[in-house]
Design a protein around this nucleic acid. Sequence first.
DNA 1: ACAGCCATGTAACTTGTTACATGATTTT
DNA 2: AAAATCATGTAACAAGTTACATGGCTGT
Lengths: 191, 191
Amino acid sequence: MMSVRHGLLALLLEQPRHGYELRAEFERRTGSTWPLNVGQVYTTLARLERDGAVEGGEENDAGQKQYVLTGPGRAEIEQWFATPVRRESRPRDELSVKLALAVTAPGVDVRAVLQTQRTDSLRALQDYTRLKARAGEDDLAWLLVLDGLVFQTEAEVRWLDHCESRLVRARAAASPPPAPASVPARQQAHR
Amino acid sequence: MMSVRHGLLALLLEQPRHGYELRAEFERRTGSTWPLNVGQVYTTLARLERDGAVEGGEENDAGQKQYVLTGPGRAEIEQWFATPVRRESRPRDELSVKLALAVTAPGVDVRAVLQTQRTDSLRALQDYTRLKARAGEDDLAWLLVLDGLVFQTEAEVRWLDHCESRLVRARAAASPPPAPASVPARQQAHR
DNA sequence: ACAGCCATGTAACTTGTTACATGATTTT
DNA sequence: AAAATCATGTAACAAGTTACATGGCTGT
């Protein structure tokens, strides 16, 4: 995490900016996915100033309060860019947790959970494709983010399919003793 | 988010349990990825009790404080299973943000960022494969989680490659005017 | 006796997030 | 004049997370 904190630092690496401008830039780059509340920019800036990463003294020609990176702030953001994002440092994946617990929870239809999620993920995929068509060639950052969403969502759908087939195999192995090879037991087709 | 909260509720759906047991079960299902601090189980249980989702009155035969689901708690967890995890409700993806901002940040070598991340992701992929080999066939939940990590990480690597080629294309389009078709400019091969 | 696990909890903190208040400037 | 946008901020809270305190019980 700390995406917002580091995001703001990264924007300040380009030039001094004021709060409202930071929000606009941040949203322009990352697209309207994950909209950023303006209030959060100010709270985050206050925390950054508290930590000595930025300074927010001087005012603009207009009455706008400019924030500038300090030395430690520059070090922090450079460190961020130089360090890979590790999976252990990311928040727990809610979908993984859900499925891991759904497989043994009583009264929970895992197939239904999978199906609901797949439907929604496929719908999301369509949305992204539509957005990509509308996004111009110019906005490189936004295009990359969108591509990332597409890649992630495609992987999610593949994983859901994979879960389903693994579940089927697990149940086949669990409930009936190995069926005779000659009669390929007709699973009940519907429901 | 709320993975821990809902995770605990899901475990309580199976049977009443006490705090320490909840941690053990949670970690067993989701594997040692994202380890769960015991303290967090108790803070989360306190919040769940505050919200009327669980009740933690009775003590075990041993001196263990058992927690049980309440009606509203049951409703909440069933709602969780019935609702897909939407991308908008997930935390901002730190890697997406990083790359979106890296492409225009001055003095930041995007290729280096991509390369560092790719190296780490590939290493993670190896770790997961090793873990999968060691995990028994029995632990279905843990296997599914691991598969999820593999799918996610593979998608990430593909995305990083995709970003690199898009960057190359964008720079080719930006810096030199379209090269004559007859001389298929030999890109420098190494480094 | 000591190490180590079982077990429960609390204090303190971080980041993320929203709802609200307030005013200036610009557009309609 | 009214509506919208620019602009700054604060109060309050949610969820995650860790470090620490405390005690019982078990095996060596």
